[in-house]
Design a protein around this nucleic acid. Structure first.
Lengths: 346, 346
DNA sequence: TGGATTCGAGAAAGCGCTTTCTGACTCCCG
DNA sequence: CGGGAGTCAGAAAGCGCTTTCTCGAATCCA
């Protein structure tokens, strides 16, 4: 049995012995139809296992019930949690979610937006740090602008700069600052930071918040104290190893990883090097992805309402752009002190 | 500036002063076109920021470049890892992935298939344990069957029973058996199992493999030794608490959680109860999701090639159904002994 | 140089659906 | 009992694109 053509509305109409218009009306409940005809159409549709062609529907009527979500990496718990929030709201509104992972490739990100635009998606959600790159920004704007002019909604989590779109913005700077303050309060004076690539605005903000707060307490971070690495578990792991290899003496008493995911790698690296946390060294992360409370030691971090981040972004997109200027929803983080940080012994 | 109609191919053609046909040919490279015309069309398209309407394309030509992936929960690392594999292959083949989360609701799963069918998705991938439920199975088959007859591809990870579709099947039974053997080899005799709902075939298989292997060594599992709970971190946590509450004396020396995610919850629960792992009790999981190697103690588990699971499923779907009977790709698991298990002291 | 052959551009026919627009018919009220 | 209002089914016009099909012009061989 080879790819038999699809059952179409016409098949249903013919089988029910009515016109296309009537069949359409019955199936969509658009207008009132005589009971017996309605009956016949429903029966025929069921009989033939009719499924309307969504493309044709979209073309003709203009229903667009799918939204696109673009993030860097689906298997990163941070994005997964946010995506979860997005999906909840989307599902509640009868929207279908297309989730795309760019694997951190800027070009692929632009390509996805282009495809979503072609699909006439009802909305496009950009999740995660933007690339601080002029060319990318221009390419992105070139896709987004006509999309929105055509009626598309756009919202983002954790972006700003350049493209002027509605944004849900976690308070990276404030959160990092609060964390720094708490850590200093614990008695720490020598810090190291595991940072991601500085092209990412999130990294820049968190770093700035942290160092600024430190500076307020008269503590400065040297060049060597900031190790740059990939924004992943392995990145955190590598960065830590490099940090340790650098100078065995004069270790920092506390390490701040700009991301929980990186902190996880750091924890393992530290353990491998025979350093106990928080005994020898304290570790703190950022995000509060679900798993970090289950680590031993449980990770001190800045809690971001991840699911809510996604929900609010989806909300922004659904509610549509009210005024002319992009809206921004700010969500604060909250320092959560757990077992991975303690008073320094040195 | 309100939702101005989209730029259409006709706009491009008019602006370039050529016919629709020519414009289409240029943009798709379908046929050779005189150089100057080609030039004009390209320029016009760029100028107008033209994006073809994918719905119209799908309707007219029949290109369907999107595949649907349905899993229980996007934020579960197990699914996330598999989805990652799917996406890699999909992207390599120029396919767009629509990822849907059912939040473990059977009806929602059927609804998603229905929508995907309407979208004329090129393929539908079902990821994760099926529901062992007659009614559900029938509803699902009723959607899938016409979809496939219409030329749609279907593949699954970790399903079987009922619906006869191409499947990538991790060796749950064998893996669990091997794990049991290894654990017994370590000297364990008293076991407890944290199981998920028995409606899920994965649970049933892993449980069976484990108990059967145990039986071969003359060890039997009592009713109370198998605690059923939700298939999540919290499920594992609760189940462990219940297990411990039951009988303080005569604790098992080893706990097997049918899922890594559940094992993570178990580890935390154990820690809270002041039991050390593996000192007082050993813990083993299943799946080898990325994070478990970073736990302290690192989790003993059965490694499944998660990404490959997704890749192979996508492969099956792309390659299309060859013969008449459903194909099955079996992927073995491998026991990975880490620090969460040790010889029992009692 | 004439007729056969290519080649490539444009006209037009759908793809499957929604939605006016028509046109019967029935109903109601003067 | 007639005419205007009100229903509701069917015909037909697109939605934006791909893809024959058609046909004029350029190319070529005898």
């Amino acid at each position: 049995m080879k790819a038999r053509p699809h059952v179409t509305l016409e098949d249903v109409a013919r089988s029910a012995n009515v016109s296309l218009a009537t069949a359409s009306r019955v199936l969509n409940g658009t207008a009132s139809v005589r009971a017996d005809l309605r009956e016949r159409v429903s029966a025929a549709a069921a009989e033939l296992a009719y499924a309307p062609n969504a493309h044709a529907q979209a073309l003709a009527g203009g229903t667009h019930r799918t939204v696109g979500v673009i993030c860097h990496d689906v298997s990163d718990p941070y994005f997964a949690a946010i995506a979860g929030g997005v999906m909840r709201v989307a599902t509640d509104n009868g929207l279908l979610v297309m989730l795309a992972g760019t694997f951190r490739d800027p070009d692929r990100e632009v390509a996805y937006v282009s495809t979503l635009r072609a699909q006439r998606a009802a909305a496009i959600l950009l999740i995660g740090s933007a690339f601080e790159d002029r060319a990318w920004e221009r390419a992105m704007a070139a896709e987004l602008e006509p999309y929105r002019r055509g009626g598309g909604q756009v919202a983002a989590v954790s972006r700003h700069r350049g493209l002027k779109i509605d944004t849900v913005q976690p308070d990276n700077k404030g959160g990092a600052a609060a964390l720094a303050k708490a850590l200093v309060g614990l008695g720490h004076k020598r810090f190291a930071v595991l940072a991601g690539p500085r092209k990412l605005s999130t990294v820049v903000d968190r770093l700035a918040g942290f160092t600024d707060a430190l500076a307020e307490h008269g503590i400065s971070l040297h060049e060597d104290d900031v190790v740059e690495a990939a924004f992943t578990r392995d990145g955190g792991y590598d960065a830590t190893k490099r940090l340790l290899a650098g100078r065995k003496r004069k270790l920092p008493t506390c390490v701040f990883a700009v991301t929980d995911v990186m902190a996880i790698g750091a924890l393992t690296a530290l353990r491998e090097e025979g350093l106990s946390v928080p005994g020898d060294i304290s570790v703190a992360g950022f995000d509060d992805i679900p798993v970090v409370r289950d680590l031993a030691p449980a990770l001190t971090t800045v809690r971001l309402p991840l699911e809510e981040l996604g929900e609010r972004a989806m909300d922004l997109a659904i509610k549509g752009a009210g005024g002319t200027r992009p809206r921004t929803v700010r969500l604060a983080g909250e320092v959560v002190l757990r077992e991975s940080t303690a008073r320094p012994k040195r």
